[in-house]
Nucleic acid binder design. Sequence first.
DNA 1: GCGAAAATCATACGAACGGGTGACCCCGCA
DNA 2: TGCGGGGTCACCCGTTCGTATGATTTTCGC
Lengths: 166, 166
Amino acid sequence: MTPRPPTNRWTSVRHALLYGVLGGTLIVVLKVVEYRYLVVTHSFEIYGALIAVIFVGVGIWLGVTLTGRPERIVIREVEVPVEVPVPVLPEPFAPDPARREALGVTRRELEILGLMADGLSNKEIADRIFVSENTVKTHSSRLFEKLGARRRTQAIQLGKESGLIR
Amino acid sequence: MTPRPPTNRWTSVRHALLYGVLGGTLIVVLKVVEYRYLVVTHSFEIYGALIAVIFVGVGIWLGVTLTGRPERIVIREVEVPVEVPVPVLPEPFAPDPARREALGVTRRELEILGLMADGLSNKEIADRIFVSENTVKTHSSRLFEKLGARRRTQAIQLGKESGLIR
DNA sequence: GCGAAAATCATACGAACGGGTGACCCCGCA
DNA sequence: TGCGGGGTCACCCGTTCGTATGATTTTCGC
């Protein structure tokens, strides 16, 4: 069996190593390419273009990765009934913070509930908010518990009834 | 429900132009830099690094831009003049036949979609409509195919968008 | 700074789900 | 009378989901 240290520290270190290795590999590749083909010919243009392409890729990846997703979208206009004792409900969908906390649902959990309602899988949610799938599972489990749901579809349904999501 | 702004033609064209202009500018800059400073000296390393840096930047920008804006959660309390208590019916929800057939969805499939949206499991649906679980699976499989869904949550979401269910 | 809540991640396992295939039945319609 | 659509059902198999448990790190209020 391969020794698999499961700790977070290890994870971080592993990431660092990963980056290092990637960077190193890149450099090696560039060097090799440089000497094997390019120095002799239209080196500059081709080489430059090559670097450009590669690093655009790196950049895109960096951008997407580091763009550390913040919260969710949401600019919700909380309807504050001025006075009128409105008859009943077309359900304008008022707030979340209140209802959310009333149910003991955390922001993260609510966020995940929203993404669930959009039809995303746990893996997709994980990729979207840049956490592991396990984390998503943990959040959703707790969410289900708080909502009294046994399945994600039920959680969605209950979440809507509770006004947690649109 | 991705808050994706409708990509109208003009937007696309504008983006294309923007990219073009940027690319062109970049090339010009590179050329100038190339001839003014670098060809004479440690051209390769420096030049390459320069390109790399620049294009990493471009890549990041691209990545961040194309990835959709990272939005911040802004919960605004807005005094909404609750003027008209118009009891506009919560969307009578004109049933289905038209939309349903337009998508080639059968009654049974639609029925199951509805129960799915209520958060029922396949087994529960089966018991509810007195068929076997396998049958429910068959129906839902076909339904997913027609809706282009890969998961039941997605089917629900798509079904709502299509006006198949409430 | 300290402690609680929240967030993160891992592993393992059983249950639920989804895809694929094949089969049978019923019914309307050419 | 044959054909096709819709409904029903069964297996198999791989994937996803949900739960349980335990741990570490972040965040935040006091």
